[in-house]
Amino acid sequence: MSTAVTPVNASAPLVISWEPEAQTDQFYVYLHFMEIQLLATNQTREFNIMQNGNSRYPNFSPRYQLVTTLYSSSGTSGKEIIYSLEKTKNSTLPPIINAIEIYRVIDLPQLDTFQEDDDAITTIKSVYRLTRDWQGDPCAPVAYLWHGLNCSYPRKESPRITTLNLSSSGLSGKIDPSISKLTMLEKLDLSNNSLNGEIPNFLSQLQHLKILILNSNNLSGLIPSALVEKSKEGSLSLSVDQNPYLCESDQCNEKKKKKKNTVTPIVASVGGVVILLVVVAAILWTLKRRKSKALMVEKDQSQISPQYTEQDDSFLQFKKQIFSYSDILKITNNFNTTLGKGGFGTVYLGHIDEIPVAVKMLSPSSGHGYQQFQAEVIVDKGLAR
């Protein structure tokens, strides 16, 4: 709108015309005007707008830096369509026009999309603020079908939306209830987005739904049992991978049980990010003998052989170490053998350099607490000496 055209001859009219392919073709014309020149007090721009020789908008003057759009509410047709902008007698300047839009009416053989489907998809576009070029009717004409949709076209009935693919569309928030209005939906793909919350039950009520893809979101809670049942029966292809907080009812129950019975290693960082495990007892079958030998050191150092002293020093070296969780998994062979349970938690059998050791782990349900557990570790170290 910042530019405009004028006739080559300032005193001649500005003419826009075209010949339709058929005289029955109808056209809707939109004329856009804005004065881009700051007129002096002695200057005037005024003109008449004629359509096929008939006056449509007489004595029109564009406003400075303000847009005016002129159009007719009915279509125009004919062998030739002519718009003529003619300077009035009072005007000192020629006519101008900044832009023109011409629309030809096309009769569509298909009916409009089923109204509830149209309303639902329009709501979805608004809720998720989709930036796709979704304009006009969602399903008709077929050549201009909205991207991400498929429709059915029953005879003498309105088209119905059967597929909605919004994968990788930047969706966030919950799965919107307006989807439930697409009652003929056969495939729904909402994968690779940032959707959260629970999977709504209304998805299981879509009777024609055959494919449901919800991969790679942040969905949580239980998968509706009706969806799980349909998936097991084979009537629904259900994909919910890469939703870390999502589970079936059985899986959730198992997680709750595991959470209650979880044995947690000593936490040495704020928020429980870094987990440290401490080896608190060693060499079960020789522990009593070593304790007695350790006490003998105070009585008679000469009675202890050099070989025992070296072994004991080696033992103390690995007792002072702090092991990572992966190290403990190797030492205990994935906690394969349980030696027993004490006041603080479970004790597992492990091996360090082929030496059998006991690994005691603090349980969150322990009534003794972390500080007392730490004190026992220190006592065990003293006894081992």
Rank of each mutant, 00 (worst) to 15 (best):
residue 1 M to D: 14
residue 7 P to T: 01
residue 9 N to C: 06
residue 15 V to C: 06
residue 18 W to I: 01
residue 19 E to Y: 00
residue 20 P to D: 04
residue 28 Y to G: 00
residue 32 H to P: 01
residue 33 F to D: 08
residue 35 E to D: 08
residue 40 A to H: 10
residue 43 Q to V: 00
residue 45 R to Q: 06
residue 46 E to G: 04
residue 54 N to Y: 08
residue 60 F to L: 08
residue 62 P to K: 13
residue 74 S to P: 01
residue 75 G to V: 00
residue 75 G to I: 00
residue 76 T to F: 11
residue 79 K to R: 05
residue 82 I to C: 13
residue 83 Y to G: 05
residue 83 Y to I: 04
residue 83 Y to Q: 08
residue 84 S to K: 14
residue 85 L to A: 05
residue 85 L to G: 12
residue 92 T to E: 04
residue 99 A to Q: 15
residue 102 I to N: 14
residue 103 Y to V: 07
residue 104 R to T: 00
residue 105 V to C: 10
residue 105 V to Y: 15
residue 106 I to C: 11
residue 114 F to D: 14
residue 117 D to C: 12
residue 119 D to L: 14
residue 120 A to P: 10
residue 120 A to N: 13
residue 120 A to V: 07
residue 121 I to V: 15
residue 127 V to D: 12
residue 127 V to F: 14
residue 148 G to I: 08
residue 149 L to P: 05
residue 149 L to K: 09
residue 152 S to P: 07
residue 153 Y to C: 11
residue 162 T to R: 10
residue 163 T to Y: 07
residue 165 N to W: 05
residue 168 S to T: 02
residue 172 S to F: 14
residue 172 S to G: 10
residue 179 I to D: 02
residue 182 L to R: 05
residue 187 K to G: 09
residue 188 L to H: 11
residue 191 S to R: 08
residue 192 N to Y: 13
residue 192 N to S: 13
residue 203 L to F: 06
residue 213 I to G: 12
residue 219 L to Y: 09
residue 221 G to C: 15
residue 224 P to L: 08
residue 228 V to I: 06
residue 232 K to C: 00
residue 233 E to G: 11
residue 234 G to R: 11
residue 235 S to D: 07
residue 235 S to F: 13
residue 243 N to P: 07
residue 245 Y to W: 10
residue 248 E to D: 05
residue 248 E to C: 01
residue 256 K to E: 13
residue 258 K to M: 14
residue 264 T to V: 05
residue 269 S to L: 02
residue 274 V to K: 15
residue 275 I to E: 12
residue 281 A to N: 01
residue 282 A to L: 06
residue 283 I to V: 07
residue 286 T to R: 09
residue 287 L to C: 09
residue 290 R to N: 02
residue 290 R to A: 01
residue 293 K to V: 00
residue 293 K to R: 13
residue 295 L to M: 12
residue 298 E to W: 12
residue 298 E to Q: 11
residue 299 K to H: 12
residue 306 P to W: 04
residue 307 Q to P: 00
residue 321 Q to R: 13
residue 333 N to T: 04
residue 335 F to C: 12
residue 337 T to W: 00
residue 338 T to V: 09
residue 342 G to Q: 03
residue 345 G to A: 02
residue 346 T to R: 09
residue 346 T to V: 12
residue 348 Y to S: 13
residue 349 L to Q: 11
residue 352 I to D: 07
residue 361 M to G: 03
residue 366 S to T: 03
residue 369 G to F: 01
residue 370 Y to P: 01
residue 372 Q to A: 06
residue 372 Q to D: 14
residue 373 F to G: 09
residue 374 Q to A: 12
residue 377 V to W: 15
residue 378 I to G: 11
residue 378 I to L: 15
residue 379 V to W: 08
residue 380 D to F: 02
residue 384 A to T: 04
